[in-house]
Amino acid sequence: MLQTAKESTSETHGKFIWCELMTSDTEAAGRFYSAVLGWSVKPMPMEGMTYHLFEIGEGDKCPGIGGMMTLPAELAGHVPPNWSGYVAVDDVDRTARAFEAGGGMIHRQPEDIPGVGRFAVVADPHGAVINIMTPLPVDDMPTAPEGAPGTVGWYELYANDLQEAFDFYAGTFGWTRDHDHDMGPMGVYRIFAEHGKAIGGMMARPESVPVPCWVYYFNVDGLDAAIARVTAAGGKIVHGPMEVPGGSWIAHCTDPQGASFSLVSMRR
Rank of each mutant, 00 (worst) to 15 (best):
V138S: 08
D161R: 06
P72H: 05
E47W: 03
I199W: 04
R205L: 10
G14V: 10
A76R: 15
D60W: 00
N160A: 08
I130F: 06
I227V: 15
E27H: 14
S8N: 13
R31T: 12
I227D: 00
P137V: 12
V87L: 09
V138E: 12
G103K: 06
W154E: 02
A144D: 04
L223C: 04
Y158F: 15
F261R: 03
F54T: 04
V209R: 07
P80S: 14
G171M: 10
F261P: 00
E74Q: 15
L71Q: 06
M68K: 09
G67T: 10
A233E: 10
Q3E: 14
G30D: 03
K236Y: 01
P212R: 09
V129H: 01
A165S: 14
A35H: 05
G77S: 10
H181S: 14
T23M: 09
Y86W: 09
F168T: 00
T12S: 15
K61W: 05
P210G: 11
S248I: 03
L37T: 08
L21W: 02
G200L: 02
N160V: 12
G240Y: 07
L75Y: 13
P135T: 13
V238N: 14
I191W: 02
G127H: 08
M44T: 14
D139V: 08
A251C: 11
G57Q: 04
V264S: 11
D90S: 15
C213I: 14
V220E: 01
W175K: 04
P245F: 10
G48Y: 08
P135S: 13
A96I: 06
C19V: 15
A128N: 01
P149M: 09
A88L: 03
D25G: 11
A73P: 02
A232C: 07
W18T: 06
T23L: 04
G104P: 01
K61Q: 13
A259F: 01
E207L: 11
G66I: 08
Y86H: 13
Y169W: 12
G38I: 13
I250T: 09
F119E: 00
F16K: 04
M46N: 07
H107V: 07
I130M: 09
V122P: 00
I113A: 11
V211S: 14
L37V: 11
I250M: 08
L223N: 03
F192C: 02
M133H: 03
T95R: 00
G66K: 02
M44E: 11
G38R: 07
T12N: 12
G66R: 00
P241C: 06
P81S: 14
P135D: 05
S84N: 14
A225W: 06
V138W: 03
V121W: 05
A120G: 10
